[in-house]
């Protein structure tokens, strides 16, 4: 009977069912959240140029009397890669806060950090590259109270 066969077969069905569920979730996250198709378990690698190599992050630090772009240092690389592959509020805020903490640690004033995620896109005929901003988020940085 088919029903009995499915029950007996559940052990063989579960791993592939899990794969399919994760893969479909990944497709939704790519569509609604700009997740890179290369990541997230949806098997979209080697299908598009929208991978980590063609995404990058720009960081801008603002404070009274100061507004400048800052580099992604080695200590920020992991957080920056996460934010560029999936520019969600959570990952961008985490990156912005890490930048703010670094600035304060190094004795530089900071009020907000603006995180921008960019993507390089390619047009066909002729083959040309152009940049497009995927998302921007400004993160307020809490400054420690001034000592008397």
């Amino acid at each position: 009977m088919p029903a009995l066969r499915i029950v007996a077969d559940w052990r063989a069905l579960l791993p592939a069912g899990l794969l399919l569920a994760v893969a479909l979730t990944q497709v939704v996250l790519v569509r609604v959240g700009d997740l890179s198709p290369w990541k997230g378990g949806g098997f979209g690698m080697f299908a598009t140029n929208d991978g980590g190599s063609f995404r990058y992050v720009r960081l801008f630090v603002d404070a009274p009397g100061r507004s400048e772009e800052t580099n992604v240092t080695a200590s920020l690389e992991m957080a920056a890669t996460r934010a560029q592959l999936f520019p969600s509020d959570r990952f961008m805020t985490r990156l912005g806060k890490a930048v703010g903490a670094r600035e304060l640690r190094e004795g530089r004033d900071v009020a907000t950090v603006r995180v921008e995620v960019w993507r390089i896109e390619f047009a066909d005929q002729p083959l040309r590259a152009s940049e497009r901003r995927l998302r921007t988020l400004t993160i307020p940085i809490e400054r420690p109270p001034l000592a008397n």
Partner: peptide, 22 residues
């Protein structure tokens, strides 16, 4: 299923695969 997803991405979901851009 893994290969089916890989095919779906290349043939239907990616705008830059079938035209050779990728």
């Amino acid at each position: 299923v893994a290969f089916l997803m890989a095919v779906i991405w290349k043939a239907f979901l990616s705008p830059d695969y079938l035209d050779g851009r990728f």
